[in-house]
């Protein structure tokens, strides 16, 4: 069970990291997308889920029972190779429905002061 105190807590990645052309190309190849000049619309999940996984595990959530319920992206500007990104993740809500715990995590990807992508992942922790 998730500690209710974590709702609203934001974890800001301590270090920025640089989006590589290789990571964009590999992702594009894996989904058959020929254009590798910008990241595909769902590329940022590879960054945000890693970040929120760490946050959720620290918060006491059993990752082995997690199923992805839904996903949303707002893209203000697509990622490109060379972007220096800081990801901050916030647990926006946690509730229990039919015995399953439902957690929504928001991840914001910034480059400097510019917000490039916000995404929301709803995770269902099976009872």
């Amino acid at each position: 069970m998730l500690n209710p105190d974590v709702v609203g807590r934001t974890y800001k990645g301590a270090n920025s990291f640089t989006v590589s052309q290789e990571s964009i190309t590999n992702f594009a190849l894996a989904i058959g997308e020929p254009n590798t000049s910008v990241a595909p619309p769902t590329f940022s999940i590879s960054i945000s889920l890693t970040e929120s996984q760490a946050l959720l595990q620290e918060s006491g959530l059993d990752w082995t029972r997690v199923v992805h319920g839904d996903q949303r992206f707002e893209i203000y500007r697509p990622l490109v190779a060379g972007d220096s990104i800081i990801c901050s993740s916030t647990i926006e809500s946690a509730r229990v429905m039919a015995g399953n715990e439902i957690v929504t995590v928001r991840s914001d990807l910034h480059s400097g002061n510019e917000l490039l992508i916000s995404s929301w992942s709803t995770l269902v922790v099976r009872a």
Partner: peptide, 28 residues
Amino acid sequence: MFTMALAGRYVSELAGGSEKVREFSARF
């Protein structure tokens, strides 16, 4: 997310490029 990524590729094609996609959401 793979299924959603393929749907994203479809949307990119409709839009005429990934850079034009602004919002994208789905329930699994």
